[in-house]
Design a protein around this nucleic acid. Sequence first.
DNA 1: TGAAAAAGTTGAGTCGTTGCACTTATTGAG
DNA 2: CTCAATAAGTGCAACGACTCAACTTTTTCA
Lengths: 214, 214
Amino acid sequence: MQRLNFFSRFILGYGVRVTEPTGRRERKKAQTRQSLADAALELFLDRGYDQVGVKDIADAADVSVTTLFKHFSGKEALVFDQDDDLEAALVSAVRDRTPGTSIPQALREHILLNQTRFAVHATDPRFADFTRMVQETPALRDYAHRMWTRHEAALARAIAEAAGAPEDDLGCAALAHFALETRGLILRHAEPSRAADEAFALLEHGWAASHPAS
Amino acid sequence: MQRLNFFSRFILGYGVRVTEPTGRRERKKAQTRQSLADAALELFLDRGYDQVGVKDIADAADVSVTTLFKHFSGKEALVFDQDDDLEAALVSAVRDRTPGTSIPQALREHILLNQTRFAVHATDPRFADFTRMVQETPALRDYAHRMWTRHEAALARAIAEAAGAPEDDLGCAALAHFALETRGLILRHAEPSRAADEAFALLEHGWAASHPAS
DNA sequence: TGAAAAAGTTGAGTCGTTGCACTTATTGAG
DNA sequence: CTCAATAAGTGCAACGACTCAACTTTTTCA
C-alpha cells in the first residue's frame, strides 16, 4: 500500500501523473496529499466508506479538515487517482488501432482491457474488498462512472475523425456514448469478456451498416 | 400550476398516480404534499435550485422541515413526480408493439415520444425555464437520469421475453441499457428526432444481425 | 535579507438530512 | 359515543460534508 490510491487506477484505467515534484514545498504538498489518501484508503477498507468521516481521515493524517479539502475536491476524490491521460489513451485506442480493425472492435478491446486489468490482482483480498466497496457504495459507483464518461465528447471527436465524418456527427456521438456505457454492463456481469462481446456485437453490426470500412 | 410538479411528468414520462385520497386524513396529507411541491417549484423557478434552501420551502408551505422530509425523500424529489407506471409503459411498449415493428423501433418511438412530449409546451416560458433548470443543475440532471434508468432490469426482461431469449440474456440486457441511454443523446442535441434516429439506427442494425425477426 | 506566495490552521457557519420526544387530529372497533 | 390506536405534524438538537475568513508558518527567489 505504498502508493496513493494504489488500487484505484485499475478501476478506471492507468492514469497516474508521474511528474516528480521538484522543490521542497511541492514535495511536502505531495506528501500531505499522500498521507491523506493512505489514511482514507485504510480507514475505508477497515470500516466502510460511509462509516468514516472526513474528520477521521484528517485526524489520521494529522491535518485539519480544511487542509483535506484543499487537496481533494470531495470525499469521493480521496479514493480515486487523477485520470489525466485516460482520455489520451481512449483517443489513441481509436486513432492508432491496428489496421484492419474496426473502431468498435478497437474500443471493445481497449475498454475490456482497461476495466478488467485488475483481475490480475484478484488474489489480493484487500483488493477484492476495495472493488466491492466501490461497487456497493452508491456515491463511489457514481463517481467512478462520472470519471469514466467524462471524456465522451473527446472520444466522439476522435471517432468522427477516424471515420472521416463531420466533427459533430450524431452517429459517432452515439457510438462514443454507447461504448463508454458498456462499462456498467461489463462490470455488473460475472463474465466480463462475454458481456463485452455481446454488447459490442450490437455496436459493431450497427456501425458496420452505415460505416462500411472503418 | 395547479398540479403537483405539473411540468415534471413531461420530463420523465407520464407517470402520475391518480388514486384519489378517500379519508380526510389522506386528503390533508396530499394537500400538504401539494403545497410543498408548489412552493418548491415556484421558489426554484424564481431563484434557481441551489439558491433555495429546504427551510425556505418548508416556510413557504407553512410546515416544519421535518414534515417536508416525511413527504419527500430529498430535496431533488420535490421537483419530480412519482414514476409509478413509467415502467409499465416501457414494458408495454415492447410487448404490445404493433406487429411488424422491431423491438428497437418500438423503443425508439416510445422513448422519443416520452422525452419530447414536452415540446408541446415550448411556448410556455415558465416551462422552458423549468427544463433548463433541470438540465443545468447537476443534482437534478443526475436524479432525473437515475429515475429514468431505474427500470433497466425490467425492460431487459421484457425484451428477452419478446425475443424468446433466456431471461438473463446479455444481448437483451445490452439493448435495454443502450436504449435507455439514448435519453441523454436525445435531450442534449437540438434536433431530438434526428438524434433518436441516428442512435437507434445503430441499435436496430446491430439487433437485426442477431435477432432476425423481432 | 526581506517580502511575496503558498501550505496549513482554527473556528465559526451553511445546508441537507436524521432522530427523538412530544402534541394534535383522525380513525375504527367495541 | 367513546376510547385507544394510528398517523401527521412540530421543535429541537445533532451529524456530516463542505466553505469562508482571518491568521500563522514555511518556502521561495529576487
